[in-house]
């Protein structure tokens, strides 16, 4: 069961840019905190562009923007050009100057990976110009491997470059 799921995930991951593997998430929320530090200049998980919630049993559930190829958020947006693909990273980002804060994109996201900040602004991952600070600080990485547990070479947050 384990391995099949992982094979499937690996195959899917090559078409995406950033993914979080709940299987390996500690729930330490480093990603949320450093994201808010980078993006909002303060420590506040409610301003982060990704979230780690906990299920009722206490299992961490990371949610992160997948930068979908066919993005429901982009399709829902009534403002032409408000969503565009970042030239360097290929990330799907929002042009703040064109956004009217109608929040249709937030409603449309099937993964609930977009949030609303205290000023009504849309909080969406933009891949930090190709150097995602969350990935950098995720402690569950192969370098800090866990020889006793299954899949010691796996990491939780991954930055996968899109296939050419």
């Amino acid at each position: 069961m384990y391995s099949n799921r992982h094979l499937r995930r690996e195959a899917l991951s090559t078409t995406r840019l950033l993914k979080a593997d709940a299987e390996f998430c500690d729930g330490c929320r480093m990603c949320e905190i450093v994201c808010s530090l980078r993006k909002a200049g303060m420590v506040n998980p409610y301003l982060a562009r990704l979230r780690v919630a906990r299920s009722e049993e206490g299992i961490p559930r990371p949610t992160i923007c997948r930068h979908c190829k066919v993005a429901k958020c982009q399709l829902a947006c009534p403002e032409p050009g408000a969503f565009y693909e970042h030239q360097g990273t290929g990330a799907l980002v929002i042009d703040e100057s064109k956004c009217t804060r109608c929040l249709k994109c937030v409603e449309a996201c099937p993964f609930a990976a977009m949030w609303v900040g205290p000023g009504g602004e849309v909080l969406k991952c933009d891949l930090c110009d190709g150097d995602p600070v969350c990935v950098k600080h995720c402690p569950y990485t192969p370098e800090n491997s866990l020889p006793h547990l299954p899949y010691p070479r796996q990491s939780c947050l991954k930055y996968v470059v899109r296939r050419a």
Partner: peptide, 22 residues
């Protein structure tokens, strides 16, 4: 770890050690 461990967890936000678990 051989018999009971389900997964590891961090007990509190901002811990890179994550020595708790289920």
């Amino acid at each position: 770890t051989d018999n009971l461990a389900l997964r590891r967890l961090s007990c509190s936000p901002g811990c890179v050690t994550g020595c708790a678990g289920m």
